[in-house]
């Protein structure tokens, strides 16, 4: 079995994989809009596709906020603690 070769073949078809992913993403959002929501404990639970929106926003927010904190306060050179 050569898992490495299989992975390499997949990596070479990166463009195709990306297109498949787009279809999956679109399908998910459509499914969430079409299928009536199972929960309504919070107002946003009944909005179709809210999960997609929240996931994307979360990701961007986490990266931006963390990097800002990093550059403003937290990052130091690697030998900072070596005296």
């Amino acid at each position: 079995m050569d898992l490495g070769k299989l992975l390499e073949a997949l990596v070479q078809r990166g463009k195709l994989l990306r297109r498949i992913m787009y279809v999956v993403l679109a399908g998910l959002v459509i499914a969430d809009i079409v299928i009536p929501s199972a929960y309504d404990r919070f107002p946003w639970e009944s909005i179709g596709g809210f999960g997609a929106f929240y996931g994307f926003i979360s990701c961007v927010l986490i990266i931006v906020v963390s990097k800002v904190l990093g550059y403003a306060f937290l990052y130091r050179s690697e030998d900072y603690y070596d005296d």
Binding site: L25, G49, F50, G51, A52, G55, F56, S58, C59
Partner: peptide, 14 residues
């Protein structure tokens, strides 16, 4: 549906 959307769209952001 919630979890898949949350995670896969995190991937889009990444």
């Amino acid at each position: 549906l919630w979890e898949l959307q949350l995670l896969l769209f995190t991937g889009v952001g990444f």
